[in-house]
Write a protein that binds this DNA or RNA. Structure first.
Lengths: 169, 169
DNA sequence: GTCCGATTGTATGACAACATACACATCGCA
DNA sequence: TGCGATGTGTATGTTGTCATACAATCGGAC
């Protein structure tokens, strides 16, 4: 059933093995991330870094764990990303006077300037991606993804019996 | 967590990076993959390996590049994955008598047995994920994802659409 | 006030996937 | 034939992310 005949040179875009929407989501996400990274390379950023920078710019100083939650990374990964951005002078860590465990991460003026560029790129990119997808479509998409995410979280929360064939619904 | 004092950006700017459906897709995909990997750990497989194995089982011997396309990985990554699966005796490489460049990858009986387990797990897992998401919804989701994917592919194929190349501040 | 559990950030090691470069085989064309 | 272009698989180094373990710190129970 899969189309394996032609190796269309232009669009490799394989919707792979099975047409399960779970796989489609993963594949699309990969393409999405790659596309963003590709375009953001001009700024020397990847998508995670750009998101981080944008968040800090919009919401002001934040602790690293807070940032980690926001961009959906682990604390360690967030830390090294902040390292990189700090080394480039795009943001800075200042100690929190009230809690000596944490850093307050804030964008430098230069960082804020770069975020402007990011948003420019971002706007154009998203416009391309959304061609032929109405606002309602997008909303429904987001809604479905949210519901799906909730299901996944629930499913992961409760530890499943070890082997296949325990109880099926 | 303290709701810290932000500078409250006067203008909403643009839809902030973290509630854009593009990000939602990426986040959901990550959860999806983690969830699969988590459950598949019982079999000693991750999602990519399972997909690969399943594909080979369902469609018979294939070359590595073909497999790479099918599971959406690069040739190198596919190669090392096949290495692992071969080392575990789940599939085997046999030379193609007609083309000495390629290997024909096929599942061993043991591999096929494992694929059965995989499908069992897979069925249950997907049932959990789909709770409250109708078949229609899923179709529309898949459809939107496909359109989005096409847009992305197009967008990436094209070198440089309308981008701030000349007028950087 | 003084401990003890919880939290924060970091160091470390592991891993999956990529891009690049390469060796080898094949195919098409002279 | 021979030979270059192309396709196939592998080696190598890099990157992004995670999990785990840890020191410093906080904050509440006593």
């Amino acid at each position: 059933m899969p189309d394996l005949s032609p190796k269309t040179p232009a669009a490799p875009r394989v919707t792979p093995s099975w047409h399960r929407f779970e796989i489609a989501i993963i594949a699309t996400a990969r393409e999405l991330r790659s596309a963003f990274d590709e375009r953001l390379a001009v700024l020397g950023l990847n998508l995670s870094q750009a998101s981080l920078l944008a968040y800090v710019t919009d919401f002001g100083s934040s602790t690293q764990t807070e940032l980690a939650e926001m961009v959906g990374l682990g604390r360690a990964a967030t830390g090294t990303m902040i390292d990189q951005l700090e080394r480039r002078g795009l943001l800075e860590r200042r100690p929190d006077p009230d809690d000596r465990r944490v850093w307050l991460v804030a964008a430098t003026p230069e960082g804020e300037r770069l975020v402007e560029d990011f948003y420019d790129l971002d706007r154009g990119l998203r416009a391309e991606f959304r061609r032929g997808i109405s606002r309602e479509d997008r909303h429904q998409l987001a809604d479905l993804l949210d519901r799906l995410g909730t299901n996944i979280a629930e499913s992961r929360g409760r530890p499943r019996p070890t082997l296949p064939e325990s109880d099926n619904r």
